[in-house]
């Protein structure tokens, strides 16, 4: 499978106190472990099982995912703009691989 490619959409700037929308997506098959391959054997489960978002190191949102989440998992959530900083996103895959992306937000 191609290397998962994370994408995020974070507003570059926001007014203090406003609630902004953060949208994330990672290209990933989210293999459920219930599907059979051409050889008739089950394809082992391989999903993104955890997603986290931190603002300057402080956790702001986390999602624990199960195989019932669609391929190319899309997650969006709000953030109340209080301070400027860097939002770091992490997608944890079964087997321990972690995919990362970060974005800056300027709060005025």
């Amino acid at each position: 499978m191609a290397t998962p490619r994370p994408r995020v959409r974070v507003p570059k700037s926001a007014k203090k106190g406003d609630i902004v929308e953060i949208k994330t997506l990672i290209s990933h098959a989210m293999e459920t472990g219930r599907r059979k391959g051409k050889d008739g054997k089950l394809i082992p489960r391989k999903i993104i099982n955890k997603f986290t978002a931190t603002l300057d190191g402080e956790l702001i949102f986390q999602a624990d995912l199960q195989p019932a989440i669609s391929a190319n998992p899309y997650i969006s959530f709000p953030l109340k703009a209080e301070k400027s900083g860097t939002i770091a996103f992490e997608w944890h895959e079964d087997g321990g691989a972690v995919y990362k992306k970060s974005a800056k937000i300027e709060v005025a």
Binding site: Q62, A63, I69
Partner: peptide, 28 residues
């Protein structure tokens, strides 16, 4: 989801930093 092979779909964990408790995902 009560009629999926496994009932668990996801757990969304919020913090006061979110400002509002809402989120969107896509499910099977």
């Amino acid at each position: 989801a009560d009629k999926n092979p496994a009932a668990e779909v996801a757990t969304l964990r919020f913090t006061p930093a979110n400002g509002q408790a809402r989120a969107s995902v896509r499910v099977r």
